[in-house]
Structure formats: structure tokens, C-alpha cells
Design a protein around this nucleic acid. Structure first.
Length: 820
RNA sequence: GCGAGGGUAGUCAAGUGGUCAAAGACGUCAGACUCAAAAUCUGAUCCUUAGUGGUUCGCCGGUUCAAAUCCGGUCCCUCGCACCA
């Protein structure tokens, strides 16, 4: 299948017939990028059609009509039409050749470049014809009138670029830094005695900036002048800094500016609100016209400059249709859309999405538009319903379905269930029936996966076309937006810029499983991922390590059951339930992190703590391999076979979580061991000693009493503890009589911990209340770990060995440590 | 400009009110193994300290007993904005 296959063309034709029947195809004028040589082009950053200018935006200038005495129009193109009230003069470049042209029924003077552009932009509106040419200098010194009828002089501006917009510029020195500096230049030149254009000196000198926008609560006269002075800008040639100044002023005035009194009926209105209204008004009154321009030069692949062309009767798909939008939004609300942010945005996006030009003229591949000869349906318009075409293309390709049978009635039947097959020739009836069955079997689409760039164009169109054409039960059920894999440095991978690595090569180099794991683990779907070769290799190494680890574990000598077995089973149960939950949520990263990083260290801990039961290990690694399977299937099967698993691991059902045999207390004990070991290592590191003996002291009974009382108190007052009250009430407890002096300090220390404690943590204190016995059972382990003798005393033990008096620092489940 | 997402330790990155000095990976350093290296293992990696302390999550301010997390402001980065799909 491709956009030029005959069968596909028939499908697209049907689709557009449907859109037309549903009154969703409309025509209206349109402005679009156009190469005089190649026809319409797409201006976008991936530079598919163009050689330069991918970042260009189409800007809509307002060409305000200033008039010479004889009525000839000087169209000053501006992005800030509201500033017309502050115009003090006009700028023309003295050395540039301007064209005098008849435009519609007026005479305009514009730069040569602008004249060429106008011919395309006026397409369908009237003729644009060259009448004469003249140097800018010819008009300098004379005057013209603003659209409001004020008379202003025409002055020389060497900063005027004939390539930008009309080459005719109006001057608003109070609000445009460029104008302000240029005006200064002209005035200074006169003062220094030079007057090459014979300007009226008094008149020029008397020009002062007209402030007409107030930004903020205080009026600032001549903001551009103030800013230029502050920035120390002196000359028209400092273009970069002038751009910067322009931006600052524009930003400020757009957001917080309002038009001042001299702005006639627009006085007092906010700039941000009035811009569009004002332009429409001016155009309606014949005081202005539109002028389109790119924000930067755009060059076609063929080398020609790209222009903006008016297409008088462009066909659109009317995605702004209120009924279609409403139905699509309602449907979207019932879909599974990921990530959540996009689920939230999709409604507003559908509202925002407007009519879309759907055909273009030129030598394009694609389907001819059925309502206009020689125009081709533009690719995005025809790509949105295509999954349904898969239902029939198969039969066309294998020859069961004949091309000429694929008429509108055929598609109506297959996709909409319309019409019957009576009287149809046997073969034809059979294949049509099968297409319909396939369609009913497969549709609707469960999910459409696409990159983040599709959020605002492709997905809305995809949804709306389904809603417009298909039966409600066949509308898509889900969308999934993913971000990108980029080159290192974050640049987009592209064929032209490089960075692309063909998948077959990459697979050969890193292996399929490593690639899969890399993608799953290295980032979440809604974040760009930088492709890094080294990192992929790390995943391969990680897989090898897991393979070896399992090998090692299963070849260890069986040491029979131990208390660690219960821990390992419980821990693996916890891991399995975490992984299951993550997978259900689609959090591949989290899931793979547990499987490939956390579980290996759990198993290491089991061994380190003396676990050696082969039967437990066999069972647990079996379960682990089942978890490895979805991410690295080849590795999983390999290990599965090695450990004597039956059949393929991929055909086994997902393991079931054994909650019955989960031992919370064994989990808590190991938490305790890990924390204590960390403390021991910390002390060892800080003191920088190789310990010869270690003594641990468990906490006094009375400290437990205090802790337990505090926990009770916090339960009784929605979590909070008032230390003062706590101390007071503890002082009254009989058992604590001997420790009265120590209570306030301990309460201060413990109460903030207790307030923060979660139920699980309280559980820990309850389960390990027999700390002394637990700890005594652990001395062998700690002694091996630390490489020296380890003894345990209670702080309460009268005969304890306590050379440094450390024992008083002990707290419940936080033994004090002595080391030497 | 409009809309959206983001700024967390050397790097990448997890983390939406208390279990956070903050997962994990990478890098770096030290130790083990080795004739040696690689690989692998073990530990350390904000500051301080015989562990319970201090200062951190772009910047400024606010809410709260409690903020990386909530609110307001501000700076910076990325994406989309309609004929590329």
C-alpha cells in the first residue's frame, strides 16, 4: 500500500465523497508558501521541501495606506498597526529602486522585491502591473498623509530593507527603537550641516516622538528613546541591540499597554485586545491591506525563493465545524489517552483546531481531489483513516479483490454496513463480505501510537475523520503519545543531519534484547531520550551479569533451609507485585528497574546473609526469569532452558503473587540489619579504623516505654504531639521515675520522628520489640562483615562493658556502637 | 506572541506535602580478584562529624507544625502553532 496505489486512491476518493456528503468540505481564500518553480511547499524545520528557512513563520503584516498628494499609495507594512497614531514620518531607502505599480484599482509604490511578492499575494483579487520605477531618493523630502489624514514627511532611512515586507516603513520613534535612532541620525546630520536630500531643516528638527501607548500605571514619555539612551545605542547599524530593545518594548506594551487619548475611538483599549480588531477595521475601511511575509528568507529545494501565494478558492476540511468538534470531544473523553496531560489537553486542542487546507496543486504524488481537476489531496488529509484500509488491501494484493469492484458502494458496505450484496457476482460478493467481516473483527483501533509532534495536528485529524465518517462503535479507543529518541546533545535524528543508525545494524551490534531493555529503562515515554551507544552496551553487560549470576546461584552448594528463605520469598513477592502494578500502569522504566537492578541485589543480600537453599533459589530464579521475559525475551528463554524450565517461558502465565507466605517480620528484620550495617560502616569510615572489637548496646527499657507512650499519644490526636503535654504526662508514669531528668530531651528527639511515622514503621517497632534477642542472633553475621569480634549488651545491663559510655546514646531499634 | 512540557547532586534521571540528603544508572575514587590490564565484585562519592548535625532540588517571595513537591512572581531551555507526516 502506498499513497499512489490505485486501490488506496479509490479509498481516499470514497473518504472525500463522505466528507463532502457530510458538508465538511468548504472553499475559501488561503495564503500558503509557494515556490514559483515547484508549486506549494511545506515550510517546516525538518526541511522536507526546502533548502533554507525551516524555522520561518508566516507573519501577517498590516500594510497601512499612506498617500502621496496624487493619491498614490505608500503601503507601510507593520506588525504593530496600533502604533499608526504615533507616526511622525515615513522611511524610504534613498538608494533602493522602488516600483510604481497598479494594484487592484490603486497605484502603489513598493520595493522591487515586494512587487514580486504582491503579484502572488493578490492572486484572484485583481491585476498587479508594473507602471514605472523610481529611486527612493526621488520621494524623500516630500510629504504624505497617514490613514488618519495627518501630513508627515518622507525621510531617508538606510536601515530599510527592500527584501522585508513592502520596503516602505512608517516611523513611530516613541515606540520603535529603530525609528528613534534613525530620526536622531537624520536630525544630527542636518545639524552637522549635511543635507543631501534638500530636507526642510526646520520641519525635520521640529519632529518629536509622539507617545501613544501607556504601559503600566505611570505614563512614560518616549519609551523607545529612554530605552535607547539607557542601552547606549547610538547608531542604526547596531541592529542586534536594536532588535533587543524592540523586543523589550514590544513585550511590555503588548501585555500591559493601553492606547492613549489621541487614538480616537480606540483610546483606552488594551494593546493585546485591540490589535486584531484594529486591523480588521482598517482593512474594511480601505485604510490598509494584508501583506504576508516570512520571518526569515525561505529557499526552495530547487534554489528559488519561496513566496506566499494567495489561493482564491482553496478547499478545506472544516474541522472547525461545531457539531463535529463537539462529538469528537465527547468521544475523546471516553478514550484511553496517555500521557495524562494529553488526555487533559485533547479537548482544548480539538476546539482550537481549525479548518485545514486539504488539497494542493502541482506535481505531487497522491490522490486526485474529486471536486477539482489536477489538484492532489494533501498527504495528512488522506492518512488519517488509513488503518481501515488494511482490511481491504490484503485482498487486493492477493488478487481476490478486483480494483474495479472498489467503488463507493463497496466501501459503504465494508465500513458502514450499508447496502446488500444481493445480485452480486459470487466472487465479488464473497470478498466484499470477508472485508466487512475483517473490519468488524479488527475495528475499532485500540490504540494509535505517535510522537509528541502529532499532538496538535495529526491526532486531532485522526479522531475527527473517524468521527465524521465511521460509525460510533468504530471510533478509536486509545491514543499514546511518545517523545523522541534524539542524538546525543538532544538534536533530532534526521536523514540529512545524520545520527540515524539503521535498526538492523544496531541489533547486530548490541542485540535485540539490549535494545529493548535500553529503550524501556533509559527514559519514560513522555521524555526525550538521547541515544548513547555506550549506554546500550551497559545494558548488554547487565544482561550478561544476570545470566552469570543465575548460573552462580544455582551451582552453589545446597545449604538447606534457613530463616533467609522466608525473607527471600517475601521480598520476591513484594517485587513481583510492584512489577505487576508498574506493568499495568505502563511504567516500563520502573518495572525494568526492579527486575534488572533491584532483584539482583536482593539475591545478593540473600547469599550474603547466609541463604543457601537450592530449592528456594530455583523457585525464585524461575519467577525472576518470568519477569525478565517481557523485556529481554531471548535472554529469558535461554536461562529458562538452562534452569530446566518446561516449554517456552513466554507461554507461561504471569506468576501469581503469594501473599499468604509473605512474612512482614522477616522483611522488617532485614531492614533493621541493613540500617545497622550502614551505621557500622559509617562509624568505621569516619574513624578510619580497622576495628578489633565492636560492642553494640540495645536501648534501655524506659526508652521503649517513652516511645510507645508517644506513639499512643500521636494516635489519639490525629498525628500531632505537643511536646510540653507529652513531657508532663510522661513525668507521671511510675516506671519512668528514675529517668525524669532525661525525659524532656528524649521526647524532643523522638516526638518529631513519631509524628512522621507511617503505620508500617510503627509495625516495625512492634515486630522487633524483642530487639535484644534478634541482635544476639546477628552477631555472627556482623562479625563476619566487620572482620572482628562483635558483642551485644543492653544499656540496662549492670555488668556491661562500656569503655566510652556509648550505651546511653542507644535508642529503640538504634543500638549504640562502640568500636576500637 | 499563543499553547504545552521542563529546569533536582560530576552527568543522565526518579521523585506531586511528612518514610527526602533525595531511588537508580553512568562517571569518579578506594579496596578485592589478577603477574598486569579489562571484565567482575565490594565500598565511598553536598559539607561536617564516632553514626542522631548543617546547607541543598533555576531565582525571589508566600501558604503550612512540615515544601524538591502547593501558590504567586521571575529567568532560562524544549516542543507544537496548521498543506512534513
Amino acid at each position: 500500500m502506498s499513497t499512489i496505489s490505485d486501490g488506496y486512491n479509490r479509498f481516499i476518493t470514497w473518504q472525500f465523497h463522505k466528507l463532502h456528503q457530510r458538508k465538511l468540505l468548504i472553499t475559501k481564500p488561503h495564503h500558503a508558501p509557494f515556490c514559483p518553480n515547484c508549486g506549494p511547499v511545506a515550510v517546516d524545520s525538518s526541511m522536507t521541501d526546502i533548502a533554507q528557512g525551516g524555522g520561518a513563520e508566516t507573519q501577517e503584516f498590516t500594510a497601512l495606506k499612506f498617500r502621496l498628494k496624487d493619491g498614490t499609495v505608500l503601503p507601510a507594512a507593520t506588525l504593530r498597526p496600533e502604533t499608526v497614531f504615533g507616526v511622525t514620518n515615513m522611511w524610504l531607502h534613498p538608494d533602493v529602486e522602488y516600483v510604481k505599480a497598479s494594484v487592484l484599482d490603486e497605484t502603489w509604490i513598493v520595493s522591487r522585491e515586494a512587487f514580486e511578492k504582491l503579484r502572488y499575494q493578490m492572486d484572484g483579487r485583481g491585476e498587479v502591473k508594473e507602471l514605472d520605477t523610481l529611486k527612493g531618493a526621488r520621494l524623500i523630502g516630500s510629504t504624505c498623509t497617514t490613514p488618519m489624514g495627518r501630513e508627515v514627511p518622507i525621510l531617508p532611512g538606510t536601515f530599510v530593507d527592500p527584501k522585508v515586507a513592502t520596503g516602505v516603513v512608517m516611523s513611530v520613534p516613541a515606540h520603535a527603537p529603530f525609528d528613534w535612532v534613525a530620526l536622531k541620525d537624520v536630525q544630527n546630520e542636518l545639524s552637522s550641516g549635511k543635507n543631501p536630500y534638500g530636507l526642510d531643516e526646520n520641519m525635520v528638527r521640529s519632529i518629536v516622538p509622539i507617545t501613544m501607548i501607556q504601559a503600566g500605571s505611570e505614563l512614560v514619555e518616549d519609551p523607545a528613546g529612554i530605552l535607547c539612551t539607557r542601552m547606549g545605542i547610538e547608531s542604526q547599524s547596531e541592529a542586534d541591540r536594536l532588535d533587543e530593545a524592540t523586543k523589550i518594548i514590544y513585550k511590555n506594551e503588548f501585555h500591559s499597554g493601553a492606547l492613549m487619548d489621541l487614538c480616537q475611538e480606540y483610546s483606552g483599549l488594551k494593546v493585546s485586545k485591540i490589535k486584531e480588531t484594529l486591523r480588521v477595521d482598517f482593512i474594511e475601511k480601505g485604510l490598509a491591506d494584508l501583506f504576508f511575509e516570512f520571518s526569515e528568507p525561505v529557499i526552495c529545494r530547487c534554489g528559488n525563493g519561496v513566496v506566499i501565494k494567495r489561493i482564491p478558492d482553496q478547499w478545506f476540511i472544516s474541522y472547525s465545524d461545531p457539531d463535529l468538534t463537539r462529538r469528537t470531544k465527547e468521544h475523546a473523553a471516553t478514550m484511553d489517552i496517555y500521557p495524562e496531560e494529553y488526555m487533559r489537553d485533547i479537548g482544548p486542542v480539538l476546539d482550537w483546531f481549525g479548518d485545514r487546507a486539504c488539497i494542493r496543486k502541482g506535481s505531487w504524488l497522491g490522490t486526485e481531489f474529486p471536486y477539482k481537476k489536477d489538484w492532489i489531496i494533501e498527504p495528512i488529509s488522506d492518512s488519517t483513516l488509513y488503518p481501515s484500509y488494511y482490511m481491504v488491501s490484503k485482498y487486493l494484493n492477493e488478487g481476490t479483490l478486483e480494483l474495479e469492484w472498489m467503488d463507493d458502494a463497496f466501501f459503504d458496505h465494508v465500513f458502514l454496513g450499508k447496502g446488500d450484496l444481493e445480485g452480486m457476482e459470487e466472487r465479488r460478493r464473497e470478498v466484499t463480505r470477508r472485508c466487512r467481516e475483517d473490519f468488524l473483527y479488527w475495528y475499532p483501533l485500540d490504540i494509535n501510537l505517535g510522537g509528541k509532534e502529532h499532538k496538535t495536528v495529526h491526532f486531532p485529524v485522526f479522531l475527527m475523520n473517524h468521527v465524521a465518517i465511521m460509525e460510533p462503535e468504530h471510533w478509536p479507543r486509545g491514543l499514546f503519545v511518545h517523545w523522541w529518541v534524539t542524538m546525543s546533545g538532544g538534536d533530532k535524528i534526521s536523514k540529512t543531519k545524520g545520527g540515524a543508525e539503521p535498526i538492523p545494524d544496531a541489533i547486530r551490534e548490541y542485540g535485540v534484547d539490549a535494545m529493548r531493555l535500553y529503550y524501556c529503562h533509559v527514559g519514560s515515554a513522555n521524555m526525550d531520550v538521547e541515544w548513547q551507544k555506550d549506554t546500550v552496551s551497559h545494558y548488554r553487560a547487565r544482561m550478561r551479569r544476570i545470566y552469570e549470576q543465575i548460573d552462580d546461584l544455582l551451582s552453589m552448594e545446597d545449604g538447606g533451609p534457613s530463616s533467609m528463605d522466608s525473607w527471600l520469598r517475601s521480598m520476591m513477592g513484594v517485587r513481583l507485585s510492584e512489577v505487576t502494578e508498574m506493568l499495568e500502569q505502563g511504567s516500563l522504566r520502573e518495572a525494568s528497574n526492579i527486575i534488572y537492578f533491584t532483584i539482583p541485589s536482593d539475591l545478593k543480600w540473600y547469599i550474603r546473609r547466609g541463604g543457601r537453599s537450592q530449592s528456594t533459589l530455583r523457585e525464585m530464579t524461575g519467577m525472576w526469569v518470568q519477569m525478565l521475559q517481557p523485556f529481554t525475551p531471548h535472554l529469558a528463554e535461554e536461562i529458562w532452558e538452562r534452569i530446566g524450565g518446561k516449554g517456552l517461558v513466554s507461554t507461561h502465565p504471569w506468576p501469581i503473587i503469594d501473599r499468604e507466605n509473605t512474612s512482614i517480620s522477616s522483611l522488617k528484620v532485614e531492614e533493621y540489619v541493613i540500617k545497622l550495617l550502614e551505621d557500622l560502616n559509617r562509624v568505621k569510615k569516619i574513624t578510619d579504623m580497622e576495628p578489633k572489637r565492636i560492642i553494640l548496646y540495645t536501648s534501655s527499657e524506659w526508652k521503649w516505654t517513652v516511645l510507645e507512650k508517644l506513639m499512643d499519644m500521636s494516635d489519639g490526636s490525629d498525628g500531632r504531639i505537643n511536646p510540653g503535654d507529652a513531657i508532663k504526662s510522661l513525668m507521671g508514669v511510675e516506671d519512668l521515675g528514675a529517668y525524669r531528668k532525661l525525659i524532656p530531651k528524649l521526647v524532643g528527639r523522638l516526638s518529631k520522628d513519631v509524628v512522621k511515622m507511617r503505620p508500617e514503621e510503627r509495625e516495625r517497632y512492634r515486630l522487633l520489640r524483642d530487639e535484644m534477642e534478634r541482635l544476639q542472633g546477628l552477631t555472627t553475621f556482623f562479625s563476619t562483615e566487620m572482620g572482628c569480634e562483635v558483642r551485644v549488651f543492653s544499656q540496662d545491663d549492670e555488668g556491661k562493658d562500656d569503655p566510652m559510655g556509648k550505651s546511653k546514646a542507644s535508642l529503640p531499634l538504634k543500638p549504640a556502637i562502640f568500636m576500637e
